[in-house]
């Protein structure tokens, strides 16, 4: 398994911590899922005087790797400020970098993303940029110092799955050695399995679990799907073919007609 800035994860499940019915259900969902990474968004207003510390302490107590994010940031400056605050609060160099460019689709502002990624990388951060499947942008992000890329499956919160399988396959093929995480748009475990089967290193999701009727059961369902997809990817899947191929041997069968 590819490592993330030198850290090897137990599995490819990264789970968000927002929008759960309660912190108790959030904690159960993590226990049941065995997710290796918890993403947590930092509101600047809570960070300023540490007023969010009760919640953060609970996230730390989950005992998994913490990936703070800059969710909801619309400018480079905002994202950089939030990243610094996150580093102080959680004591990690990891930062999931989000610079939102469009309000309806919440798609990344890739220009601002590359700029912020450069600033943060030079400042010692290990950046996980939320990007599109665009290969040129991906290349710029790598040049800016990123060693992990997080292409979207579909717009945040839509649950539409892998919207552009061709583009994502191309990205996987184009960057065989870069850890790639499908981030956003995953609605069902089957979609997470598909991403892992395609050779992605992890999936990051939040709404699909947090807003499920039973978040704990759904977290477990995703864990199983991600494990299945991971295993399938390493098992050298068969190639599809146009004509049927009998799975039982034909030789030796009685020749009747």
């Amino acid at each position: 398994m590819r490592d993330f800035y030198g850290t090897t994860l137990a599995n490819g499940f990264m789970l968000g911590t927002a929008q759960y019915p309660s912190p108790a259900i959030l904690a159960d969902a993590f226990t049941q899922s065995g997710a290796a990474v918890a993403t947590v968004s930092l509101r600047r207003e809570s960070g300023a005087d540490r007023a969010g510390q009760d919640f953060w302490a609970m996230i730390r107590d989950l005992g998994v790797h913490i990936l703070p994010n800059t969710a909801g940031c619309h400018s480079v400056k905002e994202a950089v400020t939030t990243a610094h605050m996150a580093r102080e609060v959680f004591g990690t160099k990891w930062i999931k970098l989000e610079v939102i460019g469009e309000e309806d689709t919440l798609q990344p502002d890739v220009f601002g993303l590359v700029e912020a990624a450069r600033i943060l990388s030079e400042d010692g951060f290990q950046v996980f940029p939320y990007t599109t499947e665009d290969l040129v942008v991906a290349d710029r992000l790598l040049n800016a110092g990123c060693e992990v890329l997080m292409p979207w499956g579909a717009p945040i919160g839509t649950g539409l799955g892998l919207n552009n399988p061709y583009g994502l396959r191309a990205m996987r093929a184009h960057f065989p050695d870069v850890p790639l995480v499908i981030d956003a748009g995953i609605g069902l475990p089957s979609q997470a399995a598909q991403a892992m089967e395609m050779g992605f290193d992890a999936v990051l999701l939040n709404t699909a679990v947090a807003k499920a009727g039973d978040p704990v059961a759904m977290a477990r369902a995703f864990a199983m799907a991600i494990e299945a997809g991971t295993l399938a990817a390493t098992a050298d899947p068969m190639e599809p073919r146009d004509m049927a191929a009998p799975s039982t041997p034909v030789i030796g069968k009685a020749f009747l007609s």
């Binding site: 207003e45 809570s46 005087d49 510390q53 919640f55």
Partner: peptide
């Protein structure tokens, strides 16, 4: 609904 104990500022 914000996970914060801050009680002074409305953003």
């Amino acid at each position: 609904m914000i996970e914060s104990s801050e009680t002074k500022h409305v953003t």
